[in-house]
Design a protein around this nucleic acid. Structure first.
Lengths: 126, 126
DNA sequence: ATATAACCTGGAGTTAACTCCAAGTCAATA
DNA sequence: TATTGACTTGGAGTTAACTCCAGGTTATAT
């Protein structure tokens, strides 16, 4: 697969794909005779994984570390597991915060909806 | 309340509190004779609201707009409601992405846990 | 043969959201 | 009275994560 195909498929810009490769967020991609990237199926699975994690706000630095450890082989299994657990726990915290904000927004939206206008001044923003 | 008290109470640095005020994320805080900020209970509720929204990743820009509209009075009620709904919908999307990433992390952690080491090479990172 | 389009590189620029700093004021304390 | 510590300001600096760009190469279409 070419870079533009991968870019389209995963909705990640070619610049970002090259950037990810440069910083070690995905492995070095094979180049054909003209120095042009050819993405394998496995590359794509890496990319999809990174997209999922980044979409959830997991930091690039943590992913780089994880991927670096992975490439170092089986001796890093415990270290990798530790990273996964840390990130999972962050994720849980963040989801909790977001759910609280969501409830609050829903409550406020409901108030905006059920009130017959004009609204009295007591409709505070918080 | 002084700035350092508010800072401690909400775990937001004094610099950030001043910054929030400067950019209009919270209202202008009353100053005593010496130009020193004195936060009221209502200021604190604003701050707590902002903290909740920021903690959920809602952008400063959206919050500024919302707060600006709020201060303009009842004629902006529809516009405010629109912002709330937009942000709520973003939040829902993000929570969904995070839940997917969470499931994936949990799955991977389980694999790391249940496998008897040394792990065969098929333990792919994605 | 030349124009077009897709790719390459290394490095600079951008954005959001803080975070830090120098220089100054003021009240309270030793 | 001198120092300490909490506060003030405007502006500069930082960080993460891209995003853009200039200048160059190559394969394909006209």
């Amino acid at each position: 697969m070419t870079i533009s195909e991968v870019s389209k498929k995963y909705e990640i810009s070619a610049d970002t794909l090259r950037y990810y490769e440069r910083i070690g967020l995905i492995p070095k991609i094979y180049r054909n005779g003209n120095g042009i990237r050819e993405y394998t199926e496995e590359d794509c699975r890496w990319i999809e994984f990174v997209k999922c994690m980044r979409g959830a706000g997991i930091q690039v630095e943590a992913l780089i570390e994880y991927i670096k450890l992975f490439q170092e082989g089986d001796s890093t299994i415990e270290a990798r597991k530790k990273i996964l657990i840390e990130q999972r726990d962050h994720l849980i915290d963040n989801i909790e915060k977001m759910q609280k904000a969501l409830e609050r927004l829903n409550f406020k939206i409901k108030r905006y909806e059920t009130r017959i206008l004009p609204v009295e001044n007591s409709l505070k923003p918080f």
